[in-house]
Computed example of a mutant assay.
Amino acid sequence: MFASTASDYKLRRFADGVRLRAVRMVAPHGFGYLGQVLSSAELLATLYGNAYRPERDQLVCSPGHYIIGVFAAAAEAGLLEEEALSSYGFDDSPLEAIGTERSPAVDLTCGSLGVGLSGGAGFALSNRLKGDDDARVFVIASDGEMEEGQTWEAALFAAHHRLGRLIVLLDANDSQVDGPVSSITTLEPIAAKWEAFGWDAYDVDGHDVDALSLALDAAVASSRPSVIIARTSTRQGLEALPLNADGHFIKLPPMLARDAIAELEARLA
């Protein structure tokens, strides 16, 4: 865990550490939700390095399959035992491939897409009613979830109640199981939609830790709920991936896993 605001160099190394852990978690199965980690690694690094205080704040992982990124980031930050990661995705493991109510290192994770923001708004309102003006609520979300009506109901609720301690980290990687999100539903202009609902919106390069840090600082300081729209790629940070890799559910045969691990280990050496 970083003792204070982390440098860009530390954040980039943290992000690659998250990628390496995720590759190792997926490798025994030969496939998995690796693309979601590749796209959100810098977002997670900036969150854990510059804002998230596990003893004070609440963390929501709305898309349940993104929990692999939370597990990897929590281990990288020293909040989850290293040995636990090796059990990821196996029968009877608490580190399931899709998050559940028993998932560690997170306050809420959701199997159904679009539910997490409602939970985050509930946490934020509860904190206010308890007189806790310091606690922040961070909701990890995906652009595909913006196709869900419940997301926008929760956004309206949060803006109406001016839940300024609520921050959405939106991984806009344009990827979902049916193909590119943009080919399924027109979401743009994403920032303008959130702003129209009464939110502060920060639209940034999701692999630029400096831009993410500035956006996160502004969101934390705001009196309104905020969303950081991180434009990302499910291939980021792993050149070993073949060009035709399915970003939503990546196949990782043994040779590719070895190449991916070697690439990341070399970068972190």
Results as ranks from 00 to 15, higher is better:
37 V>A: 10
234 T>P: 02
182 S>C: 13
262 A>N: 13
196 A>W: 08
167 I>S: 03
50 N>R: 15
136 R>P: 04
178 D>M: 14
169 L>G: 10
172 A>N: 07
190 I>A: 05
74 A>K: 08
101 E>N: 13
38 L>V: 06
14 F>W: 07
1 M>L: 13
233 S>M: 06
205 D>V: 05
123 F>N: 00
4 S>E: 13
161 H>E: 12
7 S>E: 09
97 A>E: 09
25 M>N: 02
216 L>E: 00
143 D>S: 07
95 L>N: 00
55 E>C: 04
181 V>H: 01
39 S>W: 08
27 A>Q: 09
116 G>L: 07
138 F>W: 02
216 L>T: 00
263 E>C: 09
72 A>Q: 05
205 D>F: 06
59 L>K: 00
162 R>L: 13
204 V>L: 09
153 E>L: 10
139 V>E: 03
152 W>R: 11
213 S>D: 12
126 S>F: 04
64 G>R: 02
203 D>M: 05
130 K>I: 03
222 S>M: 09
258 R>G: 07
144 G>C: 12
170 L>W: 05
34 L>S: 01
116 G>K: 01
35 G>Y: 10
163 L>W: 00
240 A>G: 11
38 L>W: 05
113 L>D: 02
83 E>I: 06
144 G>L: 06
115 V>D: 03
14 F>T: 09
6 A>R: 10
254 P>G: 10
60 V>P: 00
40 S>H: 08
39 S>M: 08
201 A>W: 04
151 T>A: 14
48 Y>V: 08
30 G>E: 12
259 D>L: 14
225 P>I: 03
192 A>E: 15
201 A>T: 03
130 K>T: 06
145 E>P: 12
238 L>K: 10
153 E>M: 07
132 D>E: 13
130 K>A: 15
83 E>H: 11
256 L>W: 00
134 D>E: 15
149 G>T: 11
88 Y>I: 02
154 A>W: 00
33 Y>A: 06
78 G>A: 10
98 I>C: 13
52 Y>M: 04
96 E>V: 15
135 A>S: 15
17 G>S: 10
37 V>F: 09
116 G>D: 03
264 L>N: 02
76 E>F: 05
7 S>C: 12
97 A>L: 11
12 R>H: 13
121 A>D: 02
210 D>T: 15
186 T>G: 13
21 R>D: 04
62 S>K: 05
209 V>Q: 01
244 N>R: 15
269 A>S: 15
177 V>W: 07
165 R>C: 07
94 P>T: 09
90 F>S: 14
166 L>V: 07
243 L>T: 14
49 G>Y: 02
87 S>K: 08
256 L>R: 01
236 Q>M: 13
247 G>W: 00
122 G>H: 02
107 D>W: 11
252 L>A: 04
46 T>R: 07
182 S>R: 14
86 S>D: 15
1 M>E: 11
53 R>W: 03
181 V>I: 14
106 V>W: 11
43 L>R: 04
26 V>Q: 01
148 E>M: 12
71 F>I: 00
91 D>S: 14
75 A>M: 01
